[in-house]
C-alpha cells in the first residue's frame, strides 16, 4: 500500500466548510420551498440561515475560484485534454459495466492529475457554472438597490427564482452521486479519510482491492 498526498490543506478546509454550507442551504432551502416564504413569516430562522449561509457560500465560491486560478489548479487539474475525451467513455464504461465485473479503475489519481475525466467535467460544471449561478441569483434576491429597479423593470423575479431552484436541484442530484462515489475507494471510507488527512491510500499491486476515483 502506498500513500499519495492528493489534497492540500486549504482545499481540505474549503471542502468541509463548503460541505457544511451546502447542507445548511439545502435543508433551509427545502424548508423555504415547501412551505413558501410568505407562510413562514419574516422571522423564521430558515430565512436568515439561508440568507447568511448564502453570503458565506458566495465568499466560499469566490475563494475557490481565486485559489484555483492562483494555484493554477484550474488549468492543471480541470482542463480537459485530448486524451481525456477517450477517457470519458472508458471511465463511464467502468462505472456502468466493468465495476461489476471486478475490474480495476482505469484511472489512478496522482498529485499531478487528481481527477478522472468524468470528475473534471462534474466538478468543473458544479464549481464554474452551477455554484456561480446559484450565488448570483441568490445575491440578486437580497434586494440590492442597484439591481432592484432592473429586476422590477424586466420583471425577472420569477425567472431568477426558477433558475435558482433549478440550479439547486442539479446541485442536490450532484450531491447524491458525489457522496455515493466517495465510497468507491479502496475501502468505503478511504476517499473520505483522504479528504480529511490529505493522503490517499492506494493498492500497490493489481489484484488487491482497487482504488476507484470519486466523481
Amino acid at each position: 500500500m502506498k500513500r499519495i498526498y492528493l489534497h492540500p490543506l486549504p482545499l481540505r478546509i474549503w471542502h468541509w466548510v463548503n460541505a457544511l454550507l451546502v447542507i445548511l442551504l439545502i435543508i433551509t432551502g427545502i424548508q423555504l420551498r415547501i412551505s413558501g416564504v410568505p407562510s413562514l413569516g419574516p422571522r423564521h430562522p430558515a430565512l436568515w440561515v439561508h440568507k447568511y449561509a448564502g453570503w458565506a457560500m458566495a465568499a466560499s465560491c469566490v475563494f475557490w475560484i481565486v485559489y484555483s486560478l492562483v494555484s493554477r489548479n484550474l488549468s492543471r487539474q480541470y482542463a480537459v485534454r485530448r486524451r481525456d475525451l477517450k477517457g470519458i467513455f472508458r471511465q463511464a464504461k467502468f462505472y456502468l459495466i466493468s465495476i461489476f465485473q471486478g475490474e480495476e479503475n482505469p484511472f489512478r489519481a496522482t498529485p499531478e492529475e487528481k481527477f478522472n475525466p468524468l470528475q473534471k467535467l462534474a466538478y468543473g460544471a458544479i464549481m464554474c457554472i452551477f455554484t456561480p449561478i446559484l450565488v448570483v441569483t441568490g445575491l440578486l434576491f437580497n434586494d440590492i438597490l442597484f439591481f432592484r429597479k432592473y429586476i422590477l423593470l424586466w420583471d425577472v423575479v420569477g425567472a431568477l427564482n426558477a433558475i435558482h431552484v433549478m440550479g439547486a436541484y442539479v446541485f442536490a442530484l450532484y450531491l447524491v452521486v458525489h457522496i455515493y462515489m466517495a465510497t468507491l475507494g479502496r475501502t468505503a471510507s478511504s476517499h473520505l479519510k483522504a479528504m480529511i488527512v490529505g493522503y490517499e491510500e492506494e493498492a500497490d499491486e493489481p489484484g488487491e482491492e482497487v482504488g476507484q476515483g470519486i466523481s
Binding site: 423575479v157 420569477g158 427564482n161 431552484v165 436541484y169
Partner: peptide
C-alpha cells in the same frame, strides 16, 4: 413578457 410573478414554476419541483 408574461409576468413571471404569475407562476412559481411548479414543474421544476415536479422534475426535481
Amino acid at each position: 413578457p408574461l409576468s413571471a410573478r404569475e407562476f412559481g414554476f411548479k414543474w421544476i419541483d415536479l422534475a426535481g
